[in-house]
Design a protein around this nucleic acid. Sequence first.
RNA 1: GGCGACGUGGCCAAGUGGCAAGGCAGAGGUCUGCAAAACCUCGAUCACCGGUUCGAAUCCGGUCGUCGCCUCCA
Length: 480
Amino acid sequence: MSLKIYNVLSRQKEEFVPLTPGKVNIYVCGPTVYDFSHIGHAKTYVSFDVVVRYLRFLGYDVLYVQNITDVGHMLDTGEDRILKKARQTSALPMQVVETYTRAYFEDMDALGVRRPDISPRASAHIPEQIAMIEQLIKEEHAYVHDGSVYFSVASFPEYGKLSGRVVEELEEGARIAVREDKRHPADFALWKKAEPEHILRWPSPWGEGFPGWHIECSAMSAKYLGDTFDIHGGGIDNIFPHNECEIAQSEAAHGAPFARYWMLTGSLTLDGIKMSKSLGNTMSIKDALARWRAEAIRTFILSSQYSNPIDFSDEAIEAAYKGWQRIWGAVSLTREQLRHAAPGEITPDVMAMLAVTREQFIERMNDDFNAPGALAVLQDLTRQVNGLINEGGPQTQGTLAAIDALFRELGGDVLGIVPDREEGGADAEREDGLVRLLIDLRNRARANKEWATADTIRNSLKELGIVLEDRADGTIWKLG
RNA sequence: GGCGACGUGGCCAAGUGGCAAGGCAGAGGUCUGCAAAACCUCGAUCACCGGUUCGAAUCCGGUCGUCGCCUCCA
């Protein structure tokens, strides 16, 4: 069975056939760096992280580009949001940009999101954007008015094909501000003339100004991925106008199809309400990471299909965390057993079971990256491994190593929820040694039926976040 | 008003024509010094109405409801 992707452009699931066999070029709309990233960003970027990880798992040579918007993203007051932040914090605009770009990568790193191959900044691609605008003017898809340049929606009949919007209806909409300088209310800015107080400015054929928000994605995706590329991703909330404008600009300028598959992630609500800067009900990734470990957040996000909306709540993420603990418990148990397992080959039964698991996992992921289904497969594996180790007696090195390898491959490499080892930094080994020493002392007490001493050690460790579990074959510990 | 998603057991959620995955919570059991973990067992006619079909959660029509977008937002 081959990979199928739900293509928003065609509104149906399609078999994925890359432009160039074996290679996938993918572009995902990145963040505007004027504030800390929130858990909505986490949903989108964790989702695409898994998409890219899975494509690589399948053997594709993936080139993943994700922009950093550091200019041109305006508020409806006409003020650039980065300039606004700079003014509020008495900082230079590029200081603001640098601060939040770094914070964004820190957050993504902490969430286990692998970095894109290229993270181009809008401000570093002004010449490319100007060149593209000139091309659009030449092709009569854009016009100049008083130092600004607008894209003419009327010149591109397919405008609206992604979002299902119809230009005529937009015209009637009362919510689109009619600007004197636009020929059509739906026309959008490619280049804006900079007023004297606007610090972020560049020279252009039309005078000093700055690029419109949409053009960066068109210019930078073309530069790094080509006029036509395989997958374009982003959050569903940007389908209109942003994504629609990208398509119009790119296809009008290049005379070639833009992205072939459009994948858009569902929005995230917080306690049932849409999270937005204007409403003020946001939760930053840093806040979330202070309360839950990254794997719990990833598991929560991957518990529903990427295209569906999800609601973030304490109950929901707690349930996801408990579910993750089951998987992690089986992985830890496997690795613990592996420390002193007898040499030996993998048994045929286990080999067959692992092969079926791997097959089912791939089947689920091939169905439009069905991560929830893939998680269910890992839960089945978890149940079988627990049964095998707890009831099936001691397992050989070969068996345990194969189980561990499969967890690493599917849960680790693809989903990013099974770490190579429990975190603990440089002191991890020392900590492990100390805990094992305490376990040894406690077990001597238990042998003498000194239950009070044994329980004191266990309870004290629990307060430090270390949980002991007495098994028939020995005591193991884990972080609670 | 327009566009688009969605409504599956207490909660989350997979499943696009053929006996309804998985997780969380709950109940009972096994194991255990106790605990924890684990394992076993137990639960849904899939919002409602009508239609197509031998057969529908899945297709079609309608009703009700929730959410997102249309203005900055991943």
